[in-house]
Design a protein around this nucleic acid. Structure first.
Lengths: 310, 310
DNA sequence: TTGAAATATCGCAATCGCGAATAGCAGTGA
DNA sequence: TCACTGCTATTCGCGATTGCGATATTTCAA
């Protein structure tokens, strides 16, 4: 079956090809073989009467026609995803659905782990695929490759709808049996060795570090670990300090010998938010998941009023 | 190749099925066999986990899910047609394109015949498929099955862009050698036998007749013919009258023995306009064709100032 | 009961994608 | 300079899917 002589499935190939400008890479993304995608490209060339991707030395470049098609093809697929392949109504009891979410291990520990438990009880057909936040996550949201991004609100642009999940504040943790297991002065804080988290191959700094850098404050960094979750075990048994979000610290304090202090320097509070693609506005599953997050948050921290420091 | 497990070509089938609520009819429209479309329907049912079209005795009815998909599927296909399969830029010299147009034989005779000649000279790859105006033409425009409708401006809704092509006025024709080959009085006009055009199996009246009906004026109708073009030969050799558009009358007067008079009753002037689908706004071919129409109109009637009656 | 108008099913041919292998091309680096 | 790497394009048999014509089945009306 064709639409005006065009095999509509080729649009999927075209989208990937235009994005990657690389037949092999695109074929992997589509879970097709390289010869298959090469064939698809040939059929696209036939249909449009245009090279679309022209070989230029080792790389491929888009022809003007391909540039022209880029936006519309993307839009068409996004539209189909939003309005046709994604059921508008979400029936937790019966729905088969995988949520793809960029979320930090921090937010996972303090909220999302709980949400996934609740979700999978209420909706047995639901599953999750979680990704660490990285530099390309917005792009993946744009492409519809993930359903949602959860990160610090100020990191999220206003181009898509978002929803605040909870607020948190900074705290300082130390080994309960070390020399810093007490309220800290600014001098002590600045003199101590610190553990920080930096993410991904680019060692992207966490919000906390970016804030200190911005203030021109520097500390001695003993260890830079790959995730928030690795911080506490780098603290226990040492006199190092780490600055982390209070909720996360409290989570670890349940089973690790760490002491939580109010930071002797001022840090802004943060708002953790979720963002999803505009075209998913009508997706009942998204709304359901957000409601679940808010409900989990209420159960854990609601009715306790403002969180106070120790 | 699939898009989120869905064969996108099935959307074409779904669109036709929803529209026709009839597998056999839809299969003909898509130039597929009935079994093939039956199979497509089964695959759609699998994918959406819904009957979509449920058999109700001899007919089929849409399920709520199908109702929900109806608009989005249509929109998606219209979008793809407008932005992907229809090239934005139109190169007359090389473009292969068929224009599908609803146009009356009247407008064809006085303008469009000329336009098609010009078009096919400038653009050898262009062809035309013309349809008579009928009750379903707007629906066909909506579905993208035709590129353009040309008719009296006031018949066209404001839901899509349109362009005035020319204005015309009414005139009365009679056989040059009959008793009415002179300026007519209202009494003579009303006393004479008339030829009118009524279109299609429903005998839809032309604008002229609708106007007279609306005024409560009735005439004796000797013959009701199927098209404007048949009117003059129903006049010649008789003492019948016919009220037709002046341009059309002048066209026939070139080679038939008819006399053109100003009508003794008042008729409003008409504006003949072309309308095309909103989603075709960026289609260069549409713009090119419209420009050709306006150019043909200028060449024929431009520079002559206001058309005056005899 | 039979006929007309539908949808669904069945066996066969064509197409598409696979894995595997291959050729060709353009840079890279020893 | 010459092997090497990474990429595109092409080919070959094979299996799965899709479409066709023929046929079975269902429903309603004469």
């Amino acid at each position: 079956m064709r639409f005006e002589k065009l095999d509509l499935n080729l649009l999927v190939a075209l989208d990937a090809l235009i994005e990657d400008r690389n037949v092999s890479a695109a074929s992997k993304r589509l879970h097709l073989s390289q010869p298959a995608l090469s064939g698809a490209l040939n059929r696209l060339r036939d249909f449009f009467g245009d090279e679309l991707l022209a070989q230029n030395g080792r790389t491929m470049v888009l022809t003007p026609k391909a540039e022209e098609l880029r936006g519309p093809v993307r839009e068409a697929l996004m539209f189909i995803r939003a309005r046709i392949t994604t059921p508008a109504a979400f029936e937790p009891a019966t729905a088969e659905r995988k949520f793809r979410i960029h979320v930090s291990d921090y937010a996972y520990d303090v909220l999302i782990a709980d949400v996934t438990r609740k979700a999978m009880t209420l909706a047995p057909g639901v599953s999750f695929e979680l990704f660490t936040p990285d530099r390309r996550m917005m792009e993946r949201l744009e492409r519809g490759e993930v359903d949602m991004i959860m990160t610090i609100d100020s990191y999220l642009p206003d181009t898509h709808p978002k929803q605040a999940l909870y607020t948190d504040e900074h705290s300082v943790i130390s080994w309960s049996e070390g020399r810093y297991a007490h309220a800290l002065s600014a001098e002590e804080y600045l003199a101590a060795g610190h553990v920080i988290a930096a993410f991904g191959p680019d060692r992207l700094p966490a919000f906390t570090e970016a804030h200190l850098d911005h203030q021109g404050i520097s500390r001695r960094v003993d260890i830079s670990v790959q995730s928030f979750t690795s911080i506490p075990r780098s603290i226990v048994g040492t006199d190092r300090l780490a600055t982390m979000y209070r909720r996360h610290a409290e989570y670890f304090a349940q089973f690790m010998p760490i002491t939580i202090q109010r930071p002797p320097l001022s840090f802004p509070d943060i708002v953790e938010s979720a963002q999803w693609h505009t075209s998913r506005a009508g997706d009942g599953a998204i709304r359901w998941l957000l409601d679940l997050c808010l409900e989990a948050e209420r159960e854990m921290h609601g009715g306790q009023g403002e969180r106070k420091c120790l």
